[in-house]
Design a protein around this nucleic acid. Structure first.
Lengths: 231, 231
DNA sequence: AGGCATTCGTGCGCGCGTTCACAAAGTCCG
DNA sequence: CGGACTTTGTGAACGCGCGCACGAATGCCT
């Protein structure tokens, strides 16, 4: 079975939008919509129609001129390109508030990222069960990663422990890390890291808020954060 | 007292990095470090030194050639520019798992974003107390926003309720929204929206993982996600 | 005081991503 | 069957942000 090779390198910005398109397309499919135009999809995704077409063109020429894109087929293609044709088990490091919330968050497993394990360094946390997953000691990390073929690790530790968690993850063989700790992780070359930082997001909003006030007179300035959508 | 005007428009990319610099600088200040060079800060932030200098130059010429930047002063300047000289109370819509976790997350209040209120549409949730904050009904949103002078709203509802939450927030006068629901929000012009989407982040990682495997032979490709740091 | 080492501030070129605009390709209808 | 209409796919221009490289400014040492 010849798994088709990725056509070309897809720009980072496009990769970041594909999941959004995918979610929308799945919604449309659930509502029995069979076909959608770049215009329609653009509106739902809050972006420019030309951008949608260019983004989708990286997957191949899967549209029909005069008609649009077949929803089901597009879902399949995006899934394939994003590597979502099979599950990616993840391991969560840190069983504190955040780790527990993440483990309990249904959207994980349902979307193809089952929780292969939750580990913590604190022996008193080991053994407790969160959302059906037993917390294990961090020393078991290697074993979990290897037996469950985990490629993605989630850092949900306090800031001070985050770098150590990342080190252990990479040493265990994990090649992608999703970091929730407000820390800049140092990782070996070739390891992907994405971070989710609440405080940073709020502070960015704060900047634009302050700017709005600073101007004081006109409230026009479209100080959109760049990731927002406007009606 | 003349509150200095924002000098120029600061690029979005820079605004997104300032909070990172700020956190690092505060850490350094706590460790009694009085001065730091763009090189040093760059290393800690995992970015290019020239970028650091250019970013900081948007705030003004606050460095000393041959020496570097005075940490305490830089902290003050970044704080001022980001509008962090005073608190920004936030209101959380949705008292489910996520809403509770967010309300309980200490990093909120400590970093200048106290939780002014948590609201939910479900009467059975109203009245319960989360992390010292009593959950109120969503109909009280307007009152909370006005009496507490809230500018920032957090959407922590299920996807199906997210748009309604955003509508209510903007109607109540909120001008910035942090959206945790996997939905593209439609908001009036001039409203800032930032989103935090778990599934999207994981799917982006999935893409690069799949790519790594697809290539099959070399494991070199520096498939960094663009927001990561490498050692 | 003078020279040297260090580090900032920034002009400039480059590459990426966004957007426009249009030809190509297909549908639909009379 | 032909012509009008719709929508895709993409070439090209534009703009932004990144990083280099270097002049300018400051501190330090002799």
């Amino acid at each position: 079975m010849p798994v088709e090779r990725p056509r070309r390198r897809i720009p980072e910005a496009t990769v970041a939008r594909l999941p959004v398109y995918l979610r929308i397309l799945i919604e449309q499919a659930n509502e029995e919509v069979e076909s959608i135009s770049s215009d329609g999809l653009a509106e739902l995704a809050g972006v420019n129609a030309a951008k949608v077409r260019k983004d989708l063109s990286y997957l191949g020429s899967y549209g029909t001129r005069g008609v649009g894109y077949e929803v089901a087929f597009l879902v399949y293609q995006i899934r394939r390109e994003l590597g979502l044709t099979h599950d990616w088990p993840v391991v969560i490091v840190g069983a504190g508030n955040l780790g527990q919330a993440l483990a309990g968050y249904g959207g994980f497993g349902q979307r193809g990222f089952p929780v292969a394990g939750v580990v913590d360094i604190d022996p008193s946390k080991v053994g407790s069960v969160i959302a059906g997953v037993r917390v294990r000691h961090i020393d078991d990390l290697d074993q979990i990663v290897q037996t469950r073929h985990v490629n993605i690790g989630v850092v949900a530790t306090p800031p001070s422990a985050a770098q150590d968690a990342a080190d252990r993850l990479t040493r265990a063989g994990v090649t992608s890390i999703l970091n929730f700790a407000p820390v800049v992780l140092a990782v070996p070359n070739g390891i992907s890291v994405r971070k989710v930082d609440l405080a940073v997001e709020l502070q960015i909003l704060s900047y634009y808020e302050q700017r709005r006030m600073g101007v004081g007179l006109q409230a026009i300035g479209s100080s959109d954060s760049g990731r927002g959508a406007s009606a």
